[in-house]
Amino acid sequence: MTEPNTPGSRWSDLDRPPLGAAGLRRTLIRPGSLWTALDVVDTTGSTNSDLAARAGGTGGGPAEGAVLVAEEQTAGRGRLDRSWTAPARSGLFFSVLLRPGDDVPVERWGWLPLLTGVAVATGLARAAGVDTSLKWPNDLLVVVDGEERKAGGILAERVGEHAVVIGIGLNVTLRADELPVPMAGSLALAHAVSVDRETLLRAVLRSIEQWYGDWRAAGGDPVASRLQEAYTAGCATLGRTVRAELPGDRELIGEAVAIDGDGRLVLATGTGVREPVAAGDIVHLRSAETD
Rank of each mutant, 00 (worst) to 15 (best):
S12K: 00
D13R: 11
R16N: 12
G20P: 05
L28T: 09
L34Q: 10
T36M: 06
D42C: 08
T44N: 02
A53V: 05
G56P: 06
T58V: 02
G60L: 04
A63C: 03
V69M: 10
E71C: 05
L80P: 03
L80I: 15
D81G: 02
R82S: 02
R82G: 10
W84N: 04
A88N: 03
F93L: 12
S95A: 15
S95W: 10
D102N: 14
V104D: 08
G110S: 04
L115E: 10
T116D: 01
A121L: 12
G123E: 07
A127Q: 10
A127M: 02
L141P: 09
V143W: 08
L155N: 00
I166E: 07
A176L: 13
A190D: 09
V195G: 06
D196A: 06
R202L: 13
R202H: 11
I208A: 04
D214F: 10
A218G: 01
A218T: 02
G220E: 14
D221F: 12
D221S: 10
V223N: 12
Q228W: 00
E229I: 00
L238T: 12
R240K: 08
T241Y: 13
T241R: 15
R243C: 02
E251P: 02
A258Q: 10
I259R: 07
D260P: 02
G261R: 07
G270C: 07
V273F: 05
V277H: 05
G280I: 15
R286L: 05
